[in-house]
Simulated assay, not measured.
Amino acid sequence: MTSKPVHIGVLGTHSTGKTMLLKRIEMELLGHGVAVARTGRLAKRAAGIGLPKMAQHTAASTEWIIAQGIADEIAAATAVDAEVVLADRAPLDALAYLHAALEHRGERLDRPENERLRLLVATQMPKYDVLLATVLDESVPVDESHNYDARYRSLVDHHVHRLLADDAIPHHRVTSDHDSHNRAVERALELCLREAVV
C-alpha cells in the first residue's frame, strides 16, 4: 500500500461522460486487484437537503458541495483502506457551476466571497494525481428527460476550462471521442498501477 492513496478527480459540465469515465477506471483497477473508493452524487445530495442546484446555485450550496466532497474523499479513503480514490466532481467543478449560474442569472458574487471560495478550492487541487476534464460536445444527444438548459450547460463547460486555465492547473482534456476516453483511462491506469502495491 502506498503512503497515501492516488487521487483521481473528474470535472466538467453535466452529461459529458464523467461518471461513465470513472466507472471504467474503477472496473479496470478492480480487475488488477487495486482497492478503489469512489465518491459522487454531491449535487443530488445538496438538493436533497434543500440547497439550490444547477442555474440556481449560490455561494452557500457551492461551499457545501466543496466541503462535503472533501469529507467524502477522506471517508472513502479510510473506509476501505483505498489505494485509489476516484472523485466524481473535483472541487473546482462546484466553483465553475456557481460562476455559470451567476452569469446565467446576470448576477455577480462579491469579491471577498469569490476569493474565499477560490482559496478553498485551491487548497484541494494539488492532491489530485490525475485530473480529467470532460469537454462539451453539443452534437452528442443527451437524455431528454433531464430537461437541461443548453445555455447553462455550455456556460458550465466554459467556466470549468477557464478556471483550469486561469490557475494553470495540470489536467487532461477528455472529449466525447472514444479514443480520448481510452487515453484517459490508460493514463489513470498506468499511474495507479505504478503507484499502488498490487
Rank of each mutant, 00 (worst) to 15 (best):
E83F: 02
E83N: 11
V84R: 00
V84E: 00
V85N: 01
V85T: 01
A87M: 02
A87C: 08
D88Q: 01
D88I: 00
R89Y: 01
A90T: 12
L92P: 05
D93K: 04
L95P: 04
L95G: 02
Y97G: 00
Y97L: 02
L98P: 01
L98W: 03
H99G: 05
H99R: 14
H104T: 08
H104A: 11
H104M: 13
R105Q: 11
G106M: 07
R108I: 15
L109C: 11
P112H: 12
E113C: 10
N114R: 15
N114V: 12
R116P: 01
L117A: 05
L117E: 05
R118W: 03
L120C: 00
L120K: 11
L120V: 01
L120S: 07
V121G: 03
A122I: 04
T123W: 04
K127V: 11
K127L: 11
Y128L: 07
D129L: 05
L131A: 02
L131Q: 10
A133M: 03
V135I: 06
V135M: 02
D137V: 09
D137I: 06
D137L: 09
D137H: 09
E138W: 03
E138H: 10
P141Q: 11
P141C: 09
P141K: 10
D143S: 05
D143G: 03
E144K: 13
E144P: 07
H146A: 06
Y148Q: 07
A150C: 09
R151Q: 15
Y152P: 09
S154G: 13
S154H: 13
L155Q: 02
L155S: 00
D157G: 00
H161Q: 09
R162E: 08
L163F: 12
L163P: 13
D166E: 15
D166G: 03
A168T: 12
P170D: 08
P170Y: 13
H171S: 01
H172S: 12
H172N: 05
H172V: 14
R173G: 10
V174K: 04
T175H: 13
S176T: 02
S176H: 12
D177L: 07
D179P: 04
D179N: 14
D179K: 14
S180A: 07
